[in-house]
């Protein structure tokens, strides 16, 4: 994150002392009625699919979420939940074959108006985004006709995707539309950030997570030497993230955003160590594990 006022000294400061951190202060507390959010790794799609129809009911609820370990701090967030189930961070994954009709009911169960976007990828953001008043429920029916990786999101009313800070920062869920015949083995990573700025000049609190957890609590992937897999990276932050896969290259197959998908023609696909996921961007890549590379590797990312 960038606090420009603190950078004014830039290169003219030559002997500035390192400033000690300010005393710790309490984190915001979750609401008394907050439900404990579960984290998940986007392995299981949500909703009920019958034939070519997926029916899903989503609620936005007050939640308490632990982005780190069980004994680490719990912070308040709004989260998506399948109606009658625990809220999830990231939100429930919608994953369907191309051409599936989606019948979604979405209810705002918090006391603030919300903006919801991204549920209908392929539709422009101007028409896909709608407001849900506190307590309001809305029904949508549409078809997902374009294979690809997308995400839906929520934000406080009167704001937009890029304005989200902490309370509404985890209102994100993956949408995967599989082509006829299905997709190869893949992993869906939703990147998000909980960012809490104090209003008294203190440094901020934040945590960045993949599928609801920060390292070292993130999912451990178990892969086989010589095996190929596909990463679907959904960057829901308003930040760039060069992602570096230690020991391997990606082949970048597609780039896009929450509202569109853009496969890359084979002649234009290139190998890359980092994939630069930018604001509201999504990259899908495939990792090839060469014969010599075995052991434990990491995917690292730094926000810029």
């Amino acid at each position: 994150m960038l606090l420009t006022t603190l950078l004014a000294a830039t290169l003219t400061v030559t002997q500035a002392p390192l400033v000690d951190p300010l005393p710790r202060v309490p984190l915001p507390r979750a609401a008394a009625n907050a439900a404990r959010a579960s984290v998940h790794s986007n392995h299981v799609p949500a909703g009920a699919r019958t034939g070519s129809v997926l029916t899903i009911a989503l609620d936005v609820v007050e939640s308490a979420w632990k982005p780190e370990g069980d004994d680490d701090p719990e912070v308040p967030v709004l989260a998506f939940a399948e109606r009658g189930k625990a809220p999830l961070v990231p939100g429930p994954m919608i994953r369907v074959p191309q051409g599936t009709e989606i019948r979604v009911s979405i209810r705002n169960s918090v006391d603030s108006a919300l903006v919801i976007g991204g549920l209908r990828p392929g539709v422009s953001s101007a028409t896909d985004t709608f407001t849900l008043a506190a307590g309001q429920t809305r029904e949508l029916r549409y078809r997902l006709d374009k294979p690809g990786s997308y995400f839906y999101w929520g934000a406080f009313g009167g704001t937009t995707f890029a304005d989200r800070l902490w309370k509404d920062s985890q209102l994100n869920g993956a949408i995967i539309v599989d082509p006829p015949g299905g997709s190869v083995n893949d992993h869906v990573f939703v990147l998000s950030e909980w960012f809490y700025p104090y209003d008294d000049g203190r440094p901020f609190e934040d945590q960045m997570v993949i599928n609801g957890k920060a390292f070292p609590y993130t999912e451990r992937l178990e892969l086989q030497q010589g095996y190929s897999t596909r990463f679907r990276v959904l960057n829901t932050l308003a930040l760039f993230h060069p992602m570096h896969l230690h020991g391997f290259y990606y082949r970048v197959l597609a780039r896009g955003s929450w509202e569109k998908d853009a496969p890359i023609a084979p002649a234009m696909q290139r190998f890359s160590i980092p994939i630069s996921s930018r604001r509201a961007a999504r990259s899908r890549s495939r990792s090839c594990l060469p014969r010599r590379a075995t052991g434990s590797f990491t995917v690292t990312s730094r926000s810029t």
Binding site: M208, A214, P216, R220, S296, T298, S301
Partner: peptide, 25 residues
């Protein structure tokens, strides 16, 4: 071991990091 790998208090790979175990062929 790897269950807590990278978790040293001196280790600053935090947040957006995932681990991959690659089994030998």
């Amino acid at each position: 071991g790897h269950a807590a790998a990278g978790a040293s208090s001196e280790h600053h790979m935090r947040g957006l990091v995932m681990g991959i175990h690659v089994r030998p062929a």
